[in-house]
Design a protein around this nucleic acid. Structure first.
Lengths: 186, 186
DNA sequence: AATAAATATGTAAACATTAACATGTTCAAT
DNA sequence: ATTGAACATGTTAATGTTTACATATTTATT
């Protein structure tokens, strides 16, 4: 990190439509949250920074009589910044941190029954995630062929298929590994 | 984060053998670095913290005449702390951040030729990583059957197979997705 | 003998992230 | 009418992480 990813993630989200900080917080709870996310406390601060950098502008929309929604819109500068960032290839890959696998590296110090419990827990969480992602896919793309997907939806398509692929691979590996654990005298 | 993962990662590494800060830094450049890593600046500070918490002890080993290696060893308290941490199932999964996929979500704003360049770049990096991991696997486990692997090596086996599985899935998805990009008018 | 790479440890500043604190509005259900 | 959930925005403190600064030794190569 240290590369202002959140800055550009927000610029990207705002390139789709104007949003409030609350909206952006919500986006990170949807599919893109599988690959980047942030808490509202960080988002409001980043929005301020982007305003002071003139990459976005702000206007107020009212929800009812008193409740303000501070909406944000990309400036032409912001759009330029986003487009420049998007085309730069990343030479290195950051560590995709995974505490479960880290723990497994130290399996020697985990009693066999606890290992099985850890595996089952991880299997349940990952399976649930996979089911959710597949449901999302069905709802949005149904039986649509990838070549027929609207250009506006292509980013969404790739994110969803990537997330599904990641979880399928994870679940499959969990099943295979648990089998090994069970079969071994340990 | 905010859950002292590095603390426990270091305790775990020290459970295998006594190590210096430099050694630990090196470990995070090996396979376990696929799932957790830290820079030496963070590690030396964490070691100090662990010392003050009495979870590790320190002694000096000399490399030559003047060059000190400050070795660290788990205390019984440290071992207990590690064992307790290992068996706690994690209820939530942290976002596995991936800047490439984040960028892809905003593909609408990337010119087609640049998209292909980004894909090729990612393909090259991921393929190289996969090749390295497979080589490691061959060197360490060869044609050995998982049921015959030494208990001491089991953690290593799972970390390596998980990393390989992750990269295989990634590369496959990259190939399929690039095919779609190429076939579409975009 | 000189040099570069690897070994070895540390600190400081900047930046990123989370958790907790803090407040108020609107909408839906009872 | 009340209550709870969702909507909405912010700040502060603590923690985690990276980058850059800083220094010195040992080993292998030329």
């Amino acid at each position: 990190m240290g590369k202002r990813i959140l800055k550009h993630a927000i610029l990207g989200l705002l390139s789709k439509k104007d949003m409030s900080g609350y909206d952006i917080t919500g986006e990170f709870k949807e599919e893109i949250g599988q690959f980047w996310s942030a808490k509202h406390s960080q988002i409001y601060i980043e929005l301020k920074k982007l305003l002071s950098e003139n990459l976005i502008s702000q206007y107020i929309e009212m929800s009812g009589e008193k409740l303000e929604r501070k909406m944000h819109r990309l400036t032409s500068e912001g759009k330029k910044e986003l487009e420049q960032w998007l085309v730069v290839p990343d030479e290195t890959i950051e560590t995709e941190k995974d505490v479960f696998i880290l723990k497994l590296y130290f399996i020697k110090h985990i009693p066999k029954d606890k290992v099985e419990a850890l595996f089952r827990n991880q299997f349940n969480i990952r399976s649930a995630k996979l089911a959710y992602l597949r449901e999302q896919y069905q709802q949005i793309f149904g039986e649509q062929h990838p070549l027929e997907i609207d250009a506006d939806q292509l980013g969404h398509y790739f994110v969803l298929t990537k997330a599904i692929s990641r979880e399928e691979s994870y679940v499959k590996w969990l099943e295979q590994s648990l089998e090994i654990i069970k079969k071994r005298e340990y």
